[in-house]
Design a protein around this nucleic acid. Structure first.
Lengths: 342, 342
DNA sequence: CTGAAAGCGCTAACAC
DNA sequence: GTGTTAGCGCTTTCAG
């Protein structure tokens, strides 16, 4: 592979000059720059980013850790963040923890090892980015979607609590008093917040506590949604409405209900959470709570860039928590509770 | 940040020994290794991957360029590939070209600059990875899903042609003779292959050429699916079945049909292509052609690893083209052609 | 404006 | 087994 040195020798110029010419440094005669560029092109020169990053101590890359590459909730964020960062000259290194805390830690380590300039992190554990944060106070980290107890870390999250409360209230308004929630893994802030919103609404409306089961699961995926739904139908025959607190969970619930030939909303009402593209061509179209994912991704990228670029002294000492409101989307999956038995 | 040198000084050992101890080199006394490890932990040492990669000329990272981060077709591949590579000690750098040839080229350049050990590429143009290939004959590249004219590049693709032909044949068997296809951007091999399969089936069954319009579009996304569907209904009233040749296209078609209150399959039959998770909870569940994405992703990763690890001389001189067969999934979106007018 | 020189942090040869 | 040394390819002083 041709190096800067090769170009220097080829042009008879010094290494420094060639470097400056190629990196757009002002103090270079236009004529010289042209010569260098011509030689570089001719020799097929490709600058070595590793060497540059090592020397200049800036890698121009940002790490992103999401728990699931096949969940639109996270890939939307990835997409938005990558778009914005690319425009600012940063590369995005996307990695996926599969919701495993061990992998998560390991990935954080690798990112640090590769000297990324900043990290967007969807933590898989309550203490989240803490380990890395303490080991490495230098790298700016923004937590996305879920927040953790890590200190000195900004976060951009949706107002899950309020969203949950709102959507449950809608069910109550229709007359439901026995509502089940398909929750995610306990310990994640999203789960906690969504369940908390649910319980808040229950309390406010004096719903019977034991008539409103909360099913914590191993993940947010469709399979768990399916299992949980079957469990609800089997073990809680009084339940007339299900709140699937994630998009994949809703998908699973839909599948389970369909397999059992239960009609939504005639036999049972179903609401989702989040609004993936397919949710309004489902049978039936699902009532849900939409979060402004584009704005959230946008803000995540901006916040991180700001942390990277502004000297620390200028910045707010306290980490920021930016919470985004969503809105309910009424579709056709809810109705007053059934009067017949299943 | 603490460096190897710091650890060396702290332990009173030489730089080389410390390096060996930490990288698991056999020739180190266990006792010494323990001491080094303790010191490293105590000082919060984080090895610098950039320096290692620069020196050892191996970055342990693989680049992946996909055209769309929000399309499950590609993210599934990303997920599978990343899983396999992670197990082998490689990092995956995911980037997204947004189907823009310029961005695509640029991303390839960045990957090369950062000295990735290999590249998985979904090309956005007919000549694909060619530019980089010629500029940089050293880096192994595997093209995924779409193949290009680039020389010396392996590819792993689905048998789009046969899949198309099969699914169109199903429509013909039901009695349809006026079938429209919502195709993607012309020039992509997937588009070409799918259209070619379609035309093959048309010819074989002597369908009227001008009664079977092919709508090429700007992208594979849902919006184009919607636009195309409207166009078909408006401009081709004889069409009784639509072949949406991508998953997002099918989603758009479904939305358009729903908006016009056309019933599938009573008014019009609709088949999709590929089988995202939500496709069987849609209204109606869509008949489609499923590709073995997991196997394809798996093979992509293996092929690339092999190219990276095996000396070039041992390898097949000719680039390989691995074509994967899929299978039709019959659901409820097709029926004999309508006998009424719309 | 340009050249020379000093490293960034690490690995790999080579001596001991 | 361990220490020493020479760079990987680049940026960035510092002189001129």
């Amino acid at each position: 592979m041709t190096t800067l040195k090769d170009v220097a020798e080829h042009t008879g110029l010094g290494l420094g000059t060639v470097s400056r010419a190629l990196s757009g440094h002002p103090n270079v005669r236009p004529e010289t720059r042209r010569r260098v560029e011509a030689a570089a092109r001719k020799l097929g020169y490709q600058s070595n980013g590793l060497a540059r990053a090592l020397r200049s101590n800036r890698s121009n890359s940002i790490g992103l850790i999401i728990p699931d590459l096949e969940n639109e909730f996270y890939t939307t964020a990835a997409s938005v963040v990558q778009g914005l960062l690319a425009a600012e000259g940063f590369r995005l290194i996307v990695s996926c923890s599969n919701n495993s805390p061990e992998v998560d830690i390991e990935l954080l380590g690798t990112l640090i090892e590769n000297r990324v300039d900043g990290i967007v992190h969807v933590p898989c554990t309550p203490d989240g980015s803490d380990l890395v944060r303490t080991a490495n106070p230098g790298v700016p980290i923004v937590e996305y979607a879920r927040r953790s107890s890590a200190r000195g870390v900004d976060s951009v999250i949706g107002d899950d609590e309020r969203g949950s409360a709102e959507i449950v209230q809608h069910l109550v308004d229709l007359g439901h008093r026995n509502i089940a929630v398909i929750a995610g893994p306990s310990g994640l802030s999203t789960t906690t917040d969504r369940v908390s919103g649910f319980e808040q609404a229950c309390r406010k409306n004096r719903l019977p506590k034991r008539g409103c089961p909360v099913l914590y699961g191993p993940s947010y995926d469709a399979q768990w949604g399916e299992v949980a739904t079957n469990q609800i139908i089997d073990d809680h025959p009084d339940v007339t409405a299900i709140f699937a607190s994630s998009s994949r969970g809703a998908l699973g619930a839909l599948k389970a209900l369909r397999k059992r030939s239960l009609s939504v909303p005639k036999d049972i009402s179903l609401v989702g959470f989040l609004n993936p593209a397919w949710l309004d061509v489902s049978e039936p179209p699902l009532t849900t709570y939409e979060l402004p994912l584009n704005d959230m991704g946008d803000m995540t990228a901006r916040l991180l860039l700001d942390r990277i670029r502004r000297p620390r002294t200028e910045q707010a000492a306290e980490p920021q928590v930016l919470r985004f409101d969503g809105r309910m989307i009424l579709r056709e999956s809810t109705a007053p509770p059934r009067t017949h038995s299943l």
